[in-house]
Amino acid sequence: MKIVSNGGITPAAPVAASERIEAATPAAPTAQAVVAEAPLASEVLKPAAAALAAMPEIDEARVAELRDAIARGEIGFDAGKLAGLILRYHGGRG
């Protein structure tokens, strides 16, 4: 529906089902895309935005460090608990 300035409500043009699905499931932008597209509100944020854009999406060194700690038994890992948390987060939908 469309709200008009005189206080009345007029129906909006119908939307195709495919357009509703696309609108309901937008693709998540990467940090670089957000930084590149969004105008910065302050000059103070520009250095932080540049540093964020320069960072890799995955910290490979940190991943290797955690993998080694798990292998040494320093960090516990319960695959069943992780699977349960994933299912709970996604509502059990497949």
Rank of each mutant, 00 (worst) to 15 (best):
1 M>T: 09
3 I>K: 11
3 I>Y: 10
3 I>D: 12
5 S>D: 09
6 N>P: 04
7 G>K: 05
9 I>M: 13
10 T>K: 13
11 P>M: 08
12 A>L: 00
12 A>Q: 06
12 A>V: 02
17 A>V: 14
17 A>F: 09
18 S>Q: 15
22 E>L: 12
22 E>W: 08
24 A>H: 12
25 T>K: 05
26 P>W: 02
26 P>G: 00
30 T>S: 15
33 A>V: 15
36 A>I: 07
39 P>M: 15
41 A>N: 07
42 S>Y: 03
42 S>V: 01
44 V>C: 01
47 P>K: 08
48 A>D: 10
48 A>E: 09
51 A>T: 08
52 L>D: 13
53 A>E: 03
53 A>Y: 01
54 A>I: 02
54 A>V: 02
57 E>C: 03
58 I>D: 11
58 I>H: 12
61 A>Q: 04
61 A>C: 02
62 R>Q: 10
63 V>P: 02
64 A>W: 08
65 E>V: 00
66 L>G: 05
67 R>K: 10
67 R>N: 13
69 A>C: 05
70 I>D: 07
70 I>R: 10
71 A>C: 06
72 R>L: 09
73 G>S: 00
76 G>L: 06
78 D>C: 07
79 A>F: 08
80 G>R: 04
81 K>W: 01
81 K>P: 00
82 L>K: 00
85 L>V: 03
86 I>A: 09
86 I>N: 07
88 R>L: 15
89 Y>M: 11
91 G>Q: 00
93 R>H: 08
93 R>A: 10
94 G>E: 14
